[in-house]
Design a protein around this nucleic acid. Structure first.
Length: 605
DNA sequence: TGCGGAACTTAGTAATCTGGCA
DNA sequence: TGCCAGATTACTAAGTTCCGCA
């Protein structure tokens, strides 16, 4: 139960099909009935540009000075943030013990927040309900008639919410367009900032509205009331010469106005759920500031290619070090390099219990003789990482030694944390941190698959190769998603389509063989007349068309099934180096703006 | 050296848009 | 023309890393 992925409760089984080559092997794992039945691989084979490949050309590591980067802008002008509209009471009464109850607008607002979540998993989670009810009762007051959650019936409010949704859906396209235009007119002013005189898009200029906290996994604070943010919570960061945005709520004012040009944020406030956490308003991903830092990220990953051989030699040497700290750093670096694991910082008690490499606990790793390790833990966003891999014998022995004598909950790497690990990595390559390995792995994989698998086919076929590379990167990074709600019905439709086409194929086949026997068919009904007109050549053509459609539909179906739990978007946005994509597009004559596969390039070009 | 705050990137999901097909 | 599937965008939670201070 502890290691249950938040997406599914399915069984997971391993299909030990590794080919026995630790560093270059394709590590595979299969799920049966679990939320990821795709082959999840670290895809370590065939990395032509990887330094482990003796044929690769290795350039001398060059120590480039980190550019100082303290000053991010000289002038910054913007219009502040947009606040959500004040709550509009609907007056629909919920039931308590079967009776309608009166609620003040403030009480009704929180009740509505809960009611509209009826069809989500949160609504049935004990922690969520308890946290919501505790916070709601503070607003209801000690003397309120509502004292027990079990007697609350939010259905009338939920039904009101459904009817509002339906009304919105029923709006004519003109009405929808008008409301869209009105909104974008209101937003226009806040949507842009001027950075050093250049107009740039602002990312999240809307202040987060009040709601119930939707923490992921088994988050102890889920359901807590996230209160409304007021201007007095907000710090504005703006150029000294720029006019300070007018506070949009009459009678209120900003918490503070700063002119800090060493940071890129335009506004910030403390998160009401975790007061020590800060929420920021940044520029959009398409802005030059974000684009620049993205470019630096990919450049760093590219630089790692020049250092990777010496880094691997370094950690391999330390697998047998007598210095336990050195040994742990070596093994942890090996795992991060080979499996693209995250660093894994310590977590507070009031967060979901997830781990990364440095925080792996003894129960997260099982040693399977002679030299396999089985990882089973909840990572970022409480997404399960389950993988069985063959490792170097020295790594296997070291992990066994690190775990020996430790109780459940004990850290595998007890002499290590992310600061120590990153400090060591920086000694090996300037600017190197644990997360660079993920970007590096993604780049190598994308480049390898694109170069290896692209043939002289159609643009569509080439785009499929790109999608496959995207998928492999997503699998390496363990980017998973919940099975789409409509998945089953879509699969049924595709099955029905295949059945229909198969019947059509059989009919055409029969007709063709009849024609072959007898050139003329005699019949009285319209269908027979129509069939009479078909020549064997026409039938043959139709036959091959239907066959092609069956194959295409079947491929489409298999692809959909294959990708049902793979989230492609994250790797597309954060891991696929656009320069690799552009180079491939140019080499293989794929128009860059051909379709949306490549809209991510807007970030850099 | 360790800690914690600050700043930023990475992440999955829901809402929305869009283009192709019946 | 309306529907549907697939893709994008918006939202915000959850990570990583940096940096200053004791």
């Amino acid at each position: 139960e502890d290691n249950q992925c938040r997406r599914c409760q399915g069984n997971v089984s391993d299909d030990d099909s590794e080919d026995g080559k630790p560093l270059t092997a394709r590590f595979s794992r299969k799920r049966t009935g679990g939320c990821s039945d795709q082959t999840v691989s670290a895809l370590k084979k065939a990395r032509p540009s990887d330094a482990s490949d003796s044929s690769s050309v290795e350039s001398e590591p060059k120590d480039e000075p980190e550019h100082d980067g303290r000053k991010k802008w000289s002038t910054l002008v913007h219009n502040g943030v947009v606040f959500p509209p004040p709550y509009k009471p609907h007056g629909v009464k919920m039931l308590y013990n079967g009776q309608p109850v009166d609620l003040t607008p403030e009480q009704e607002e929180v009740a509505t927040m809960f009611a509209v979540m009826k069809d989500t998993e949160y609504a049935s989670k004990e922690t969520f309900i308890n946290n919501f009810f505790t916070d709601w009762r503070k607003i209801l007051g000690k003397t309120h008639v509502i004292t027990k959650f079990e007697l609350c019936d939010f259905t009338p409010i939920y039904e009101w919410h459904l009817s509002e949704k339906e009304k919105k859906k029923q709006m004519t396209s003109e009405e929808k367009k008008a409301s869209r235009e009105e909104k974008s007119q209101q937003d226009e002013k806040f949507m842009w900032a001027f950075v050093d005189g250049v107009k740039e898009k602002v990312g999240n200029f809307r202040v987060e509205p009040p709601g119930l906290f939707r923490g992921r996994g088994e988050h102890p604070k889920m359901g807590r009331l996230k209160r409304r943010i007021r201007p007095s919570d907000i710090t504005i960061n703006i150029g000294e010469e720029a006019p300070v945005p007018v506070c949009p709520i009459p009678g209120e004012s900003w918490k503070e106005v700063k002119h800090d040009n060493t940071v890129t944020w335009l506004a910030c406030w403390n998160d009401p759920i975790n007061e020590k956490d800060i929420k920021y308003v940044f520029l959009a991903a398409s802005s030059s500031l974000k684009g620049q830092s993205d470019k630096e990220k990919y450049e760093k990953a590219r630089k790692l290619k020049d250092y990777i051989r010496s880094i691997r030699a370094n950690y391999t040497k330390d697998f047998r070090s007598k210095d336990q700290r050195k040994k742990q750093i070596a093994v942890a670096t090996y795992l991060i390099d080979k499996l693209a694991l995250r660093a894994g910082d310590e977590k507070d008690e009031d967060e979901a219990d997830t781990v990364g490499c440095c925080t792996l606990k003894v129960e997260n790793v099982t040693c399977l003789p002679p030299n396999k390790l089985q990882f089973d833990f909840l990572g970022k966003d409480s997404i399960r990482y389950y993988n069985t891999v063959e490792v170097e014998l020295a790594v296997y022995e070291a992990i066994k030694e690190f775990c020996a004598g430790k109780k459940k909950g004990g850290h595998v790497f007890d002499k290590l944390d992310t600061t120590k690990l990153n400090a060591h990595l920086k000694d090996l390559m300037p600017g190197l941190t644990a997360k660079v390995f993920r970007t590096y792995d993604a780049s190598i994989t994308l480049d390898t698959i694109l170069n290896k698998e692209t043939t002289d086919g159609t643009v569509d076929e080439k785009a499929k190769v790109y999608q496959r590379a995207n998928k492999e990167v997503a699998i390496i990074c363990n980017h998973q998603r919940a099975v789409p709600k409509s998945h089953d019905s879509q699969m049924n439709k595709l099955n029905e389509k295949i059945d229909e086409l198969t019947v059509e194929l059989e009919k055409a086949n029969k007709l063709l063989s009849k024609k072959a026997k007898k050139r003329k068919l005699v019949g009285s009904d319209g269908d027979a007349k129509r069939r009479r007109k078909l020549t064997p050549e026409m039938l043959q053509k139709k036959l091959s068309q239907v066959e092609t459609r069956i194959v295409e539909t079947d491929n489409h179906k298999n692809n959909k099934e294959d990708l049902k739990t793979v989230a492609l978007g994250t790797s597309k946005i954060n891991y696929l180096d656009p320069r690799i994509t552009v180079a491939w597009c140019k080499t293989h004559e794929v128009p860059i703006d051909r379709d949306k596969h490549f809209t991510v390039l807007n970030k850099l070009f």
